[in-house]
C-alpha cells in the first residue's frame, strides 16, 4: 500500500512555520513603525498659542484609535485561535490564560480607562503637560488635546497597553465562543476525509465562525470607544466647560461606539447558530 507511505516532511513543516513567522514580522514591524511615526514622533510640535484645526485632529484620533484597536483585535483573534484550535483543553497554559481572560473581561471597561489615566499616562509624562497647558489658561480644549497627542513615544505604548488589556480579553472570549459554536460534525467529517487542521480551519471553521468573530471584535471596540468617549467628556467638562470644541470628539466616539454595538448585535442576531433541522 503505497499511498500510506508518503512521508510527511517535518523539515518542510518547520520551514513553512518559519516563513509564516517572517511574513508576520514583516507585516507587523512596518505597521508598528508607521503608527509610531505618524502619531507620535512625526507630528510637528505646535506652539501652545497656535490652535490646531480641531477637525483634522479628531480624525487623527479616530484613525489612531482604529489602528490600535485593529492591532489589539488581531492579536486577540490570533491568541484565541491558538488556544482553541491548537492547545488541548487540559493544557495548563490554556487553562491559565482562559481563567485570566474571564477575569479581565468581567471588569467594566471604565476601570481600564481609569487605569490608563492614573497609571499609564503619568509614566508617559503626559499628565504634566496637560496640567502645564491648562494652567496657562486661555488655551482651549483643542490645543489641550493636541498636546496629549504630541506626547513622547511612551504614550503610544501606554495607549496600546490599555487597549490590549481592554480589548484583547473580550476578543479572545468571543472568538473562542465563535469557534466553539462551529458544529462538531462539520469538523469531524472534514477530518475524516483527510483534511489537515489548516484546511478544516480555512475552508469550514473560519467561514462559519467569521461573522461571530467580527461581532466580538465590534463589541470589544464599541466598549473601548465608549470608554474613550467618556473620558473625553470628562476632560471637556472639567477642563474647558465653555470651549465646546472637543464635543466633536465626544460625539464621534460615542456615535462610533453605538454604531459598532448595533452592528455587533445585528451580526449575532443574524449569524448565531440556531438548532436547525437535520443537523
Amino acid at each position: 500500500m503505497n499511498s500510506l507511505m508518503t512521508h510527511p516532511n517535518p523539515r518542510q513543516k518547520f520551514v513553512l512555520q518559519g516563513i509564516a513567522l517572517v511574513i508576520l514580522g514583516a507585516v507587523f514591524f512596518p505597521v508598528w513603525n508607521v503608527l509610531k511615526k505618524t502619531h507620535v514622533s512625526d507630528v510637528p510640535i505646535s506652539s501652545v498659542a497656535r490652535v490646531p484645526d480641531p477637525l483634522s485632529n479628531l480624525f487623527n484620533d479616530l484613525y489612531f484609535f482604529l489602528s490600535i484597536s485593529f492591532l489589539a483585535i488581531l492579536l486577540g483573534v490570533t491568541c484565541a485561535f491558538y488556544l482553541q484550535e491548537w492547545l488541548p483543553e487540559t493544557n495548563w497554559v490554556r487553562r491559565l490564560v482562559e481563567n485570566q481572560v474571564s477575569i479581565l473581561s468581567g471588569i467594566p471597561s471604565l476601570l481600564y480607562g481609569l487605569l490608563a489615566v492614573l497609571i499609564f499616562l503619568p509614566y508617559s509624562g503626559v499628565i504634566q503637560k496637560i496640567e502645564t497647558v491648562s494652567s496657562d489658561g486661555n488655551v482651549g480644549a483643542a490645543s489641550l488635546k493636541a498636546t496629549v497627542f504630541q506626547g513622547d513615544t511612551t504614550l503610544f505604548y501606554a495607549m496600546l497597553l490599555t487597549f490590549v488589556i481592554l480589548v484583547m480579553p473580550r476578543v479572545i472570549k468571543t472568538t473562542q465562543a465563535a469557534l466553539r459554536s462551529v458544529p462538531m460534525p462539520i469538523r469531524e467529517s472534514a477530518y475524516a476525509l483527510g483534511a489537515s487542521r489548516s484546511q478544516v480551519l480555512m475552508k469550514h471553521v473560519v467561514p462559519i465562525a467569521f461573522p461571530l468573530i467580527l461581532a466580538g471584535g465590534c463589541r470589544a471596540m464599541s466598549c473601548a470607544f465608549a470608554t474613550a468617549a467618556l473620558f473625553i467628556g470628562v476632560c471637556i467638562w472639567s477642563h474647558a466647560p465653555q470651549s465646546g470644541q472637543m464635543t466633536g470628539g465626544f460625539v464621534l466616539f460615542l456615535g462610533g461606539s453605538l454604531i459598532l454595538s448595533i452592528l455587533s448585535s445585528f451580526l449575532i442576531e443574524r449569524y448565531s447558530p440556531v438548532p436547525t433541522r437535520n443537523t
Binding site: 500500500m1 499511498s3 500510506l4 508518503t6 512521508h7 483527510g194 483534511a195
Partner: peptide, 23 residues
Amino acid sequence: SDVSLPELRKTVGMVFQRPNPLP
C-alpha cells in the same frame, strides 16, 4: 512515524452515526 494522516484517512474512509454532510 512516516504515515501521513491525510493519506491514511483517504484510504480508510468513515461514515458517522448522524449524517454529517458539510454545509
